[in-house]
Design a protein around this nucleic acid. Structure first.
Lengths: 153, 153
DNA sequence: TTCGATGCAAACACTTTGCATTGGC
DNA sequence: GCCAATGCAAAGTGTTTGCATCGAA
């Protein structure tokens, strides 16, 4: 498969190796799709479920490796919920809507956000790398449950 | 001071108490200003330095409490760096520029971002709570050090 | 054959919690 | 005086690391 070939190339280029574990982890992210966010624990569980066993330590090491190769990218979410997703070309225009009650996430695109981010960068003399908007709210289900007036988490 | 009065009121309203520890922690955030981001450890150290001693456990409990009262708010930064800052009325229009190399942060405002976030929320049926844009880049200093062409962290 | 990668378990950093004591109201 | 809040230390999380073994190149 094309991606595995690229991965092999990227790794060899840096004197690193393509191991079955690394391959399986990247394949998992490809299988679930670019819009899905997985924690280290998620990856570990999914791989166990799918026969292949990879140690949690290796999952952590691989998530870091694949992120450094820009094949994955880490989401910026509140608290200790580190999650990763497949990196795509349009990353800079790919933002998240996060339900404050159930944690569900949705994605959306918005060229205006990219513009605003890049204006801000220029204004402060920064060289832009990426911009990420996280919108917190209540998803339709949770908004319905708490009713109109009550407080949110 | 006005804020302490408000805090007392908010707490009593919920059957909670205004303790010197809570007061000192909130005052610290007021003293450093709304643009400053402190970790639990920062707060603990600063208070030790300033004579008052508050246990780290209490710092954590108080940060959570003050956040739940919307007097503080937690930043959404990558990795395990939980930081808090004084909440202000214009929170929804207050975003961060983060240097990928040295960690320095700047703030900026952008009504367009708020618009974009609220449009996205409506489109997905979410009830908007807040939106936060984090722009990663290289600050002028770090961009200068790495030179024009080279890679970023 | 070599040296990077893995698995395991121990070590870590950060955060939360149980419980006796203190102190705000 | 009552019950919430504190301090301490112990227990949890989630993540990283040392080391012997394994296996990709």
């Amino acid at each position: 498969m094309a991606v595995s070939g690229n991965l092999r190339h990227d790794l060899n280029h840096r004197g690193q190796r393509l191991t079955p574990q690394r391959q399986r982890i990247l394949e998992l992210f490809e299988r679930v799709g670019a819009g899905h966010h997985l924690s280290a624990e998620d990856v570990h569980q999914q791989l166990l479920r799918a026969d292949s066993r990879v140690s949690l330590a290796t999952v952590y090491r691989t998530l870091r490796l694949l992120s450094s190769l820009d094949l994955l990218r880490e989401l910026e979410l509140p608290e200790g919920s580190r999650r990763f997703e497949l990196a795509t070309a349009d990353d800079d225009d790919h933002h998240h809507l996060l339900c404050a009650a159930c944690g569900r996430t949705e994605e959306f695109e918005s060229p205006e956000v990219l513009d605003a981010g890049s204006r801000a960068a220029v204004h402060h003399g920064f060289r832009l790398l990426s911009s990420r908007l996280t919108v917190r709210g209540l998803c339709p289900t949770c908004a319905g449950l708490t009713g109109e007036p009550s407080a949110a988490i």
